[in-house]
């Protein structure tokens, strides 16, 4: 980020965005804060209750359960989708019409409306008329509306189907940006496929993987539509995510105070998490803050190799 001019008039260029986001984010958030601090029983009957609603949210067993559940779900999603995404990206063809076709095929689940993803999987997993449900039923007794494990597994598989392509595309973009020289150097060194991945590709993928982990964590932590369509949060509350619970409290029960406090705490948690991530992500952009890890040193060493090899080759030719 060096070489940029200091110019405070640039604020004029940013103003439209500030206005739009103020309208769509700040005003609503102020309203949420308003709900959370007052007990509103009518237009003229408001009672300031301070942090009472926050205490209620923090001690509510349903909300605590949903929090743990959602955190578990997000962790499982990351553990499955990041390695699988990398695996698929490394298999993808990298040139010609096959590469274009592969990109389109991989990206398709991402452009399907989220409720249609849910609908598709609801049809697909029906144990009487769905292909997936019927197939699985040959081996296990599968019933997603009664068995909590089945419901959980279905949500996990569906989300993997829906979002692994995002990880794949990010990693693919990262892989394509690796200069050819790195691979040539590794090939000359006789590096195995694993070594190429470990010492050439992985360090270069750090940045895109950070984006992938950040996006996957955030999106899975606020997942609503897909589980809502497939299981409705059930059976019981076994697949109820934080967003499903919050929507039930806010729209279903119209419990403004609790919903407001819940919203703010939910929002704050995500803010803190993304702040940590954003800081780490931009760490290597700040001058003087770059730390070269041993891995990167090794990659840089490998990258220099071709020149030496070329000169050796020239000598041989002479």
């Amino acid at each position: 980020m060096d070489g940029k001019k200091k110019n405070n008039r640039a604020w004029f260029l940013v103003l439209p965005v500030v206005f739009v986001v103020a309208f769509t984010a700040i005003i609503p958030l102020m309203a949420v804060a308003n709900y959370s601090l007052q007990d509103i029983q009518g237009a003229s009957n408001r009672l300031f209750v301070g942090l009472d609603f926050f205490k209620r949210v923090a001690t509510d067993p349903n909300i605590q359960d949903a929090f743990t559940r959602n955190l578990t779900l997000s962790a499982q999603i990351l553990l499955i989708q990041i390695p699988l995404g990398i695996f698929l990206a490394r298999l993808m063809p990298r040139s010609g019409w096959k590469a274009s076709a592969a990109l389109v095929v991989v990206a398709i689940p991402l452009i399907i409306p989220w409720n249609v993803v849910g609908t598709t999987w609801r049809i697909f997993t029906r144990s009487d008329i769905g292909l997936g449900g019927v197939l699985v039923n040959q081996f296990f007794d599968y019933n997603l509306s009664e068995d909590t494990t089945d419901a959980w597994a279905t949500i996990l598989v569906m989300d993997t189907w829906h979002w692994t392509p995002l990880v794949t595309l990010l990693v693919y973009a990262g892989l394509r940006s690796i200069p050819q020289a790195y691979y040539q150097a590794a090939a000359i060194d006789g590096a195995s496929r694993m070594a190429v991945f470990r010492f050439v590709e992985l360090p270069k993928l750090r940045r895109v993987l950070m984006i992938a982990i950040l996006l996957r964590f955030m999106d899975s932590f606020m997942m609503y539509t897909e589980p809502f369509v497939v299981t409705g949060g059930g059976p019981g509350s076994s697949t109820q995510t934080l967003s499903i619970l919050l929507t039930t409290i806010a729209i279903g029960q119209f419990d403004l105070g609790v919903a407001g406090a819940f919203s703010l705490m939910y929002f704050l948690f995500i803010q803190i998490f993304s702040f940590i991530f954003f800081t780490v992500l931009t760490l290597d952009e700040r001058p003087g803050a770059t730390k070269v890890t041993p891995k990167e040193k090794k990659a840089a060493k490998l990258a220099k190799e071709p020149k030496q090899v070329r000169s050796k080759l020239e000598k041989v030719q002479k």
Partner: peptide, 18 residues
């Protein structure tokens, strides 16, 4: 950073005020 956090805001938070 503040712009970025809005991309990360759960839609469920904004339902009632919207």
């Amino acid at each position: 950073f503040w712009l970025l956090t809005n991309r990360m805001a759960p839609a469920a938070v904004f339902l009632l005020p919207f």
